[in-house]
Design a binder for these strands. Sequence first.
DNA 1: CGTAGGTTTGACTGATCTCAAGTTTGGTGG
DNA 2: CCACCAAACTTGAGATCAGTCAAACCTACG
Lengths: 243, 243
Amino acid sequence: MAPNNDDPFKLLIHKLERLAKLDEKDEAAIRTLPFRIVRYTAGQHLVHEGDRPTDCCLLLEGFACRYKLTNSGARQIVSFHMAGDILDLQHLMLARADHSVSTITDAVVAWLPAANIREMLTRHPVINEALWRDSLIDASIFREWVLNVGRRDAKARVAHMLCEFAARREAAGLGSAERFELPMTQEQIADATGMTPIHVNRMLHALAEDGVIARDKRSVQILDWEGMQRAGDFRPAYLHAAA
Amino acid sequence: MAPNNDDPFKLLIHKLERLAKLDEKDEAAIRTLPFRIVRYTAGQHLVHEGDRPTDCCLLLEGFACRYKLTNSGARQIVSFHMAGDILDLQHLMLARADHSVSTITDAVVAWLPAANIREMLTRHPVINEALWRDSLIDASIFREWVLNVGRRDAKARVAHMLCEFAARREAAGLGSAERFELPMTQEQIADATGMTPIHVNRMLHALAEDGVIARDKRSVQILDWEGMQRAGDFRPAYLHAAA
DNA sequence: CGTAGGTTTGACTGATCTCAAGTTTGGTGG
DNA sequence: CCACCAAACTTGAGATCAGTCAAACCTACG
C-alpha cells in the first residue's frame, strides 16, 4: 500500500474542509506544520494515561483506539480511529493524558508539535473553528457510546458499533459502507461495547442469522442496511456529518 | 436563596479563570455579553434533541442533566450539571442538538446568543482557550462515563457517580465534598449509571452497610473518602482540576 | 388528609458472564 | 512448501449479577 508520506495532510484537510470553510491560506498553514512520521505495528502504544504529551498524533494509515483501564485491569475502549483522525487533539489544551492510545493494526502516524498547532489556531480562526468542531463531534460520539453501553442490549450494542464504523469509514472516504474488513478483533469489539468476547461472538452470529450481515473471517457485508440500523438503534445524526 | 441575577457570570468566570489566564479585558468581554434570564421548575426541558439552538445556556442556580433516548424509550443521562456550567457549549459550533437538556431541580438559566460568544472568541484568544478547555474536560468526563457504565459493577458505578458529583461540587465552590444534598432521584442515578432504580437503591444501601457513606433522605455524608474512592474506582485525574 | 412521586423490600427471571474445551487462521522457521 | 505455534474464534454448560414484577411504605405538598 502506498504510504501517505507524499501528502500526509490530505485526509485531514479533506475532513476539515467539511467542518469549516478553509481558504488557501488556511490550507497552506496546515501543510507547513512541522511533523515527524513514525511507523507502528499493531498493538503499540502512542500515548499512555498520565503522560504529558507535547505532540499530537495524526493517523495517516491503519487503525487505532483510545482506551481506559479500571483499577482491576478491565479495559474499556472509548473510541476507534481511522486514517485522517487526530487521535489526541485534547492534548492541545490539557496537560495530562486521561487515557491511552494504541494502534490496533500496523499504522503510520504523523506527530505534530502541539505548540505549533496552538500558534496556528491564533492566526487562523477558521482552523480553530474546524478543529474545535472536530473535537465536539468526538464528544458527541462519546455521548452516544455512553448510551450504547448503558442502555442497549448486547446485540444492539454490537450492531451499533458496526453501523458507526461503516458510516464513519464511508464518510472519511475510506470505502463503501456495504462491505468492509474489520480491523479489530472480537476482543476489541468486546472492550468497546462493555461485553465479553464470547458474547460478542454469539451476537455476531445472531446478526448473521437475522440476515442483516454476512461474515467471512474479518470481512463484513451489510446485507440489509435498514435492518442493521434497526438492529443497532443507529441514527447517524450524532456524527454531525451533514453540515 | 439569593438568585445570581446580580452577577450571573460570577461562577462561570471563577471557573474559566482556573482554565486560562483571563485578563481584565477578557472578563469585561464576558460581562458585556447579552443574556436573558429564565427560571425553570424541576424537569423542564431546555433543549430537545434535534433542535437548532441559537443560544447557549449557562446554569446559574440549581441542577440539570443531559440525556439521550434509545428508540425503545430507555433514557441514558450522559452528564449532570451544576451552577456555573454551560450546558450546551457544543451549540456554538454544531447546528443540531444530538441530545436533550433538562433541569432536575428548580433552576435559573442565562441564555447567551451563540453568535455573540463566537464573535467574542475571535477577539479574545484566552477565552477561546478557556472554553475549548472546558469542552475538552466535558469530553474527558464522557470517556470516564463510558468506562464507568461499560466496565464497572453496579456498586462501583453508583459509588463513582457519587464521588464525581462530590468532587465537582467542591471544585465549583458549591460546598464540601464530605456532606451534601443529592439533587437527583434514584431513578436519575439509574439512568446515569445504566441500571434500574431498584438496583441503585440496593447499591446505596450496600455502600451504607460497607460504612463508606451515611444517608438520610437525599442527604449523603461520605464517612470514608478513601474507602469511597476505592469502592467507586475513582481517580479524579480525568476531571483535569489541577492546572 | 389525600395524592403522587419517590423509596424500599421480596421473590423470581433471565441476559450475560465464567469456565472449559476445541477449532480455525495466519504467520514463521526449517 | 510444509509443520508448527500463538492468537483468534467458536461452542457448550453452568453460575450470577442485575433486571422484572409486585407490593408496601414514606413524605412532601396541595
